[in-house]
Design a protein around this nucleic acid. Sequence first.
DNA 1: GCACAGGGCCAAT
DNA 2: ATTGGCCCTGTG
Length: 291
Amino acid sequence: MKNVVMLENLKYFNIGQILESGQVFRFEKISDSSYLLNAKQKLIKIIQQQDSDSILIHNTTVSEFDEIWSSYLDLDTEYKHIVQVLSQKDEYMAKAIAFGEGIRILRQDPWEMLISFIISQNKAIPQIKQCIKNLSQQFGDLIDGYEEQDKMYYTFPTAKQLARASEEALRDCKVGFRAPYIMDACQKVLNEEVILNDLYICTAEEAKNKLMGIKGVGPKIADCILLFAYSKSEVFPTDVWIKRVIEGIYFKGKETSLKVIQDFSKQYFGELSGYAQQYLFFYGRENQLFK
DNA sequence: GCACAGGGCCAAT
DNA sequence: ATTGGCCCTGTG
């Protein structure tokens, strides 16, 4: 088929689970077996039938797949090993993995993750998606050559594009009190106070400190950026959901400080903390556990 | 109708 | 180290 790539024999890959696990915001569910994904200045449709280990990617080519999507979808990581090690930790972890065995941690754009997770604070996921859509429509570029339900799709705005926005224009996108944070991020990236591309080779701790120099970026948001953009799997982003899950499972339901939870994950999950967090987050949130 | 929380962080105690 | 407030919106 033209402009369609098919992958077969894909293990540990469920596009629904990947997209619905809270790591990515610019996608739409078309049906149970079909998702539209806006990333890398492109728009693709991914189709995967229930429990199938093959997928179709529409609107791409084999060379573009090799160049972009293979890495983005984290297909070079050996999830068999991760699943095996984590499943042996305890019965809850085993359950969480059995529930979300098709999760992968995408390799997304650092700038987009920075702004997206600044927006995420004190918002629900549907609101976050709406804000990002607003910003893209206002300040990104139209993605042409693709029509889906007569809707228009836009790239995520670059730092340069977003820097042109006034605080008022940002607030019109419903980002609220985060508008000054977004402006500070634009400033620090444009004047190279923070060079996002340099953080790939930094340790998680170094990168975290640099990111937290930006207003509105605290420990949780920095960890999300480290995990979802830079694949630093030793971090354990601790939000209200995962906090309740960890307290419920490992601390007998008792209120536990962030520091204790961080120390626990580091000690218990080690280099696989980030993956453990994704499985537990998805399991807990989808099933409304420990609410 | 209105109180509350939602993938937190900042600034003032 | 601890705590109130925050833009905005969907939910009970």
